[in-house]
């Protein structure tokens, strides 16, 4: 007669340990973990300038699935898309270049796996079909198709969707009949990737963005630390401080170098994502806009603030210097805490 675990004395200890560990077990992946794909090929292909990468594993759970269902009906997440997933931060000289995230999407020919490259602003840099078993794969892997995704944000990708939320809008991107279904699956996959990356890895994305900015201003910056729940009540001088982020920058020895203040700035009637790097003596160490300046002239005015310190409005000769003052005051108040 079959009696499972009849060798109880030997098995009991291990079983108890296993049950203990079971409490700590994470959301599961259907296949054994030894089958997890190595990211090197995709990172190398999507960020050829990268010399290293860092993995960040986070849980994609039912809350994320609900978020996707709300934002992109009738799309949802396939059961294989739940569980622990990895965002790879591509690095060069330890500076973040962008992100690689691989997602699978159900299609008529089985699951397709797409490795997406996102820049630091979470716009699509490129993609690579890791697994695709359809006759149209080669056509859609070609640059001619991929370039329609380049530099597109989540909102811009959504604009490429047809009203059914599953296929590519024909009026924007006419495709041969045989490629339409696969192109739709790739587009939906890209939209989900941008959404899920922001939703699940928002903190890591913000840290990578801040570190890249800090390294532009402080040569020795090695790490950044986001100031949690940072919000300034003040909204002055066209700086939308209520949407601001602040990160302290440190060198390798852990010494504070300064901070990076990031917030939308109203420039010529439009909001620009501007960041200020302010050193620990309250001098402006760098300034830039993630989406560029409205004109070279405006850029020059911002650049002229670098190296200066602002402590009172009487020192400010123009609106940009008032913005610098606002960023400095908010940052220094926090650094002193």
């Amino acid at each position: 007669m079959y009696t499972p675990f009849r060798h109880l004395p030997g098995a009991t200890l291990l079983l108890l340990l296993i049950l203990l560990l079971g409490a700590a077990a994470s959301p599961v992946f259907a296949q054994a973990y030894c089958s997890l794909r190595d990211p090197v090929i995709s990172i190398d292909r999507l960020f050829p300038e990268a010399d290293n990468y860092r993995s960040v594993v986070r849980v994609v759970d039912r809350a994320v699935r609900q978020q996707v269902s709300r934002e992109l009906p009738p799309n949802t997440l396939h059961f294989g898309e739940l569980g622990r997933h990895t965002l790879y931060i591509a690095l060069k000289d330890n500076i973040p270049l962008g992100f690689v995230h691989s997602r699978s999407e159900q299609s008529r020919w089985g699951l397709i796996e797409v490795a997406w490259a996102l820049d630091l602003s979470l716009r699509i840099k490129d993609f690579h079909l890791q697994r695709c078993r359809n006759a149209a794969c080669n056509d859609l892997q070609a640059l001619q198709f991929r370039r329609h995704f380049f530099k597109k944000s989540y909102a811009q990708l959504r604009d490429m969707l047809a009203p059914d939320n599953r296929s590519v809008d024909d009026s924007q991107l006419p495709l041969p009949e045989k490629s339409k279904a696969l192109a739709g699956a790739i587009l939906v996959c890209g939209i989900k990737t941008a959404l899920i990356t922001q939703y699940v890895w928002g903190k890591e994305v913000a840290e990578a963005q801040m570190l890249a900015r800090a390294r532009q201003a402080f040569n020795d910056a090695a790490t950044v630390e986001l100031v949690p729940d940072f919000r300034s009540e003040r909204a002055a001088a066209g700086v939308r401080a209520e949407q601001a982020q602040l990160a302290r920058a440190y060198d390798k020895q852990g010494r504070l170098l300064g901070a990076v203040f990031h917030a939308p700035h109203d420039i010529e009637g439009q909001a620009y994502p501007v960041w200020w790097a302010i050193d620990n003596r309250a001098a402006i160490a760098g300034v830039a806009s993630d989406s560029g300046w409205p004109s070279e002239q405006v850029g020059r005015v911002f650049d002229a603030t670098v190296g200066k310190s602002f402590s009172a409005s009487q020192q400010c000769a123009n609106q940009v210097e008032l913005m610098a003052l606002e960023a400095t005051r908010t940052t220094m108040a926090n650094l002193k805490e």
């Binding site: 079959y2 009696t3 499972p4 675990f5 009849r6 060798h7 030997g10 098995a11 291990l14 079983l15 296993i18 560990l21 054994a32 973990y33 030894c34 997890l36 290293n52 990468y53 860092r54 993995s55 960040v56 594993v57 990895t86 690095l91 330890n94 090695a222 790490t223």
Partner: peptide, 30 residues
């Protein structure tokens, strides 16, 4: 019955390595 463990060790300068540990108590009968 066993544990399937996958742990990526990562530092500030990038990934250091991956530990995969799969040990299973296996009980055979006939």
């Amino acid at each position: 019955a066993g544990m399937d463990l996958h742990k990526v060790f990562s530092g500030e300068n990038g990934d250091i390595g991956t530990l995969t540990a799969q040990a299973y108590w296996t009980d055979n009968n006939n």
